[in-house]
Amino acid sequence: MQLPDLKQYRSTFEKKGISLPLPSVPFEQKGLLNALPKPNLNQTGWPWTQETDPKVYSIRGSWPKLTIVSPSFNQDKFLEQTIRSVLLQNYPNLEYIIIDGGSTDDSKQILEKYSRWISYWQSEKDEGQGHAINLGFSLASGNHYAWINSDDYYTKDSLFTVASAFLSSQTDFVYGYGYNLNTVKNELELVKILPVRDYFIKIPGIIQPSAFWSAGIHQPIWEELHCALDFELWLRLVKGRSRRLVKKTLSVAHVHDDAKTSDPKMKQKWHEDHLKIWSTEAHGTVHEWKRIIFLNRIRQKLYKLLHL
């Protein structure tokens, strides 16, 4: 497993004349809802006609800096919703970075539309999702990190909830529940997870857009992976760290035909990723993984019985 040096990525940006640290997203005492451009879609509710009340942040004089990265490619159907769900949190100390892989749809026009409120964005060919995420985090200067894909979005007040959790518990990793939104049926499915224990870290469970971590524990994405890059990152990032499960829904993931988790054409890519992951000495063997899966099934049944 060969991981990239994010300092080298950062130096490439600096050679291009990018001034670091990046500017923060403008904070307005009255909120950004009326300041942002009108959305392309005629929709109501969050994050189209609603926003987090900026007054919730008045309980503290200062808030830790959050860096959010969005990798994107040809997701103009969802991109505006993602952007608005980040900006309309009205978080007072936010760095938002979008790395688009040179989309051929209307993504660039959407990025230009919201450029005033984005710390940095680019739309040019990259080497895939993992590379885009690493590029974004190479520019990061926040105290805490997260990434959200351009076909997902945050729920209302999620950044307030997460920042409050970091401040109250001094933890390394904060994670929560999520929704899956079926775009055909327009149905929401609540996805809850059990508290993550070190022994069971090899069981996929952490909901990627509902995960946030301290900058001090950040590690690069393994760019060779195509689908399971978040799962592999948790294997390195979370084990042995202090963590806190927030029993709230922090994000919504669109379930659509082109999503890696629901596209049948991606089945082989998922298989190839898992072969790579379990072939590394750092992550153990397939035999060990299967044993943990079996024990986790028992654990889940016991948990349900105890929480009826």
Rank of each mutant, 00 (worst) to 15 (best):
M1S: 10
K7D: 15
I18T: 11
V25C: 03
G31Y: 02
L36I: 11
Q43V: 11
Q43L: 15
T44Q: 13
Q50E: 15
K55S: 12
Y57D: 00
I59E: 12
I59K: 04
G61W: 02
W63D: 03
L66G: 02
I68V: 08
S70Q: 00
P71V: 01
Q75H: 08
V86S: 03
Y96F: 14
T104F: 06
E124I: 13
K125W: 14
H144N: 08
A146Q: 10
S150R: 01
D157E: 15
V162E: 05
A165W: 04
D172E: 12
N180G: 08
N182V: 01
K185C: 04
V191D: 03
S214Q: 09
Q219A: 14
Q219L: 15
W222P: 04
F231A: 01
F231V: 10
L233Q: 03
L237S: 04
V238Y: 04
K239G: 11
S251F: 00
A253P: 00
H256Q: 10
D263L: 11
K265V: 11
K265M: 10
M266Q: 04
K269I: 09
D273C: 02
D273K: 00
I277L: 02
W278G: 00
W278T: 06
E281V: 07
H283T: 08
H283Y: 09
H283E: 10
H287Y: 13
K290Q: 12
R297S: 13
K304Q: 14
